[in-house]
Design a protein around this nucleic acid. Structure first.
Lengths: 125, 125
DNA sequence: TAGTTATTGCGAAATAATCGCATTTATATG
DNA sequence: CATATAAATGCGATTATTTCGCAATAACTA
């Protein structure tokens, strides 16, 4: 299964990179000028996740959000950082704060999904 | 809005207390002998959450899970502890591991939803 | 330029959670 | 103990998110 470049993929990735925040399929569909089918957006995003280009966050609303974050380059934070969901402006962003924990004996952690909710720096004033 | 005691509420709460793990509406409905409507279960659970008797976790599958955990009595861990979701046995439990973080200036955290996924101590062997 | 197959669009389907409304029932009160 | 009030429930419909199957399209290779 080799990957091919398509306008759709480029548009979605560019949007995520430029915005710098995590977005839902819904938001992505709205913000992209061209018409892209919803199922396609999900497929593109899931493929990005498989390839490690994008990471997925499931927020407290049960929805999936996708992000390309700069911090993911840092080995320290890769994958294991906190996300912040603002109750007011509804944005979700990657925080440059790593998740630290030590689980009881016998447990093996494969993935981490941590979301903090509240008011972000812009909405706090 | 005063709360009233009903067999339904008692059954749901007893199940959650005895099992000690976090359960979805689905599982609760299955494990309870008597017939309870699905909408009712959600309403009962949400009321428990409002009253602070139960806490809600949203896992990576986007579903809501509800738990009464012993650790919640500890002031240190109340609300801010990690949850563990086993990929194999599908159970979700509260870990006695508190979530520590310091957010950037200006952010105000209201709630925390942290779920670690992997294999639990029973499934790791 | 042609062939292979990854990708897309479309509609349907699966799943989770909520809502409106009529009915039931727990609780307080006379 | 009977009764009134409103909380709680059951039922069906509804909303929302995500996925799936299949046919059509288009990217890449040779």
């Amino acid at each position: 299964m080799e990957r091919r470049n398509t306008p759709t993929k480029e548009a979605v990735l560019e949007l995520l990179v430029k915005s710098g925040e995590a977005m839902s399929r819904d938001t992505i569909e709205q913000k992209i000028t061209q018409n892209i089918n919803r199922a396609t957006i999900y497929r593109v995003l899931n493929r990005f996740c498989e390839d490690g280009v994008v990471h997925k966050i499931v927020a407290e609303d049960g929805k999936q959000y996708f992000a390309v974050c700069a911090n993911c380059d840092d080995k320290v934070l890769s994958g294991h950082h906190f996300h912040f969901r603002c109750i007011e402006c509804e944005t979700i962003e990657c925080l440059p704060v790593s998740v630290n924990f030590s689980v009881p004996n016998g447990y093996q952690v494969a993935s981490v999904n941590c979301v903090l909710s509240g008011t972000c720096k812009d909405c706090s004033r």
